[in-house]
Write a protein that binds this DNA or RNA. Structure first.
Lengths: 202, 202
DNA sequence: CAGAATATTTGCGGGACACGCAAGCTTTGG
DNA sequence: CCAAAGCTTGCGTGTCCCGCAAATATTCTG
């Protein structure tokens, strides 16, 4: 990878992290594009060369994480399907997988509350769901490769992918809803197991 | 219901139908809110008293449909869960359930193509998914009532709701992807059955 | 039914956003 | 070292979304 692409990736990440941090700290509508650009050290105009909206910049963190599920899935072709899926998902939601030094947070509780407010923002929810849908397509493709089915014609890989992202979304929502918060890993394990086994009344 | 509420409901419907029709005909970014307002016979400012964005007005048709799933579910408390779910969903996607006289369409194929373009619009996809999520919450509540579980604490009703909306979204996507188009009802029946039974490799 | 109380519609104006365009600057590759 | 390609930036424009307050319509009350 040349210097050029590295710089682009850096800017991409810097912008999305800045967008998330400022939004969690201040709230969505108290952050202007200008602020995000400044925090990332680029001009306001450049922001829109990378993201087509403020919401997209924020949701990019989610997109990135979810895309790695598909990636992880492709890296373990041997195992039984649901075993591989569960493992791939959990790996992305391991406690330290994401936040390595990046949200320079003074108070963890305050940060959590900020996140809760952030994901409640209507404009954001749409964008996060859209990111999930994009990842879902990748997961479906990965599943199709693995099971040797045709994603153009078979419903199965799409159903699996949809169920996986549904489990992820549901687990996150439940995690943010509960107080004290139930760990996401526990919820994910539970959700995926139930989906794989069928959702008959328990 | 007084005259007041009836008029509101009418305006609501008129605006969303106009938004959909114009968007399908011309494409999302060639329709201004002014056009939609005019087509519905209200002032541009009034549009934003009903919908907080152009996208939301369009997605409202989807929201309306999906909310009726929860409603239908509540109207049949006796039956086994998945039987009731399947029936409630299929009822909303019956061929003539929605379009009674409303999309005054000259050419059906052209309309279908317009819809395909419309749902590909990024801004729209986010809003449709958000509508789905709103409906999902209602469905979860309905399932919780039925199974007597606490939606604050139990994951199950949310998982079921998520799976149902996942099936709906997947079926619609597949319907729009295939050519010749596979009927939605067939896809929905298939998807729901598989989810209820578990998604083991077939 | 009259008039008060309450809602809704509308026009105006402002703040922010997204993006096309063209000029300048940086990296790349020979 | 130079030309080609790509990225960044400033500027201008069109649209959108919403707060506010006046005008209009509906409902309520006596």
């Amino acid at each position: 990878m040349g210097l050029r692409e590295r710089k682009k990736a850096q800017t991409h990440a810097a912008l999305s992290w800045a967008a998330v941090r400022l939004t969690v700290e201040r709230g969505f509508d108290k952050v202007k594009v200008e602020d995000i650009a400044e925090a990332a050290g680029v001009s306001p105009r450049t922001f829109n060369n990378y993201f087509s909206s403020k919401a997209e910049a924020i949701a990019f963190r989610h997109l990135d994480r979810c895309l790695r599920i598909a990636e992880a899935l492709r890296e373990r072709p041997g195992e039984p399907l649901w075993e591989a899926i569960t493992d791939s998902v959990l790996r992305q939601f391991a406690p330290d997988a994401e936040a390595v030094a990046h949200p320079p947070v003074a108070d963890a509780a305050q940060w959590a509350e900020g996140v809760r407010v952030m994901v409640a923002e209507p404009a954001l929810r749409g964008e996060m769901l859209r990111a999930g849908a994009t990842a879902e397509a990748e997961i479906a493709a990965a599943v199709a490769e693995r099971t040797g089915s045709d994603p153009q014609q078979d419903l199965y890989p799409h159903l699996v992918a949809s169920a996986v992202m549904g489990a992820v979304n549901t687990a996150i929502a439940h995690h943010l809803r509960t107080d004290p918060a139930v760990p996401v890993s526990r919820l994910l394990t539970d959700a995926l197991a139930r989906i794989a086994a069928g959702l008959a009344t328990p």
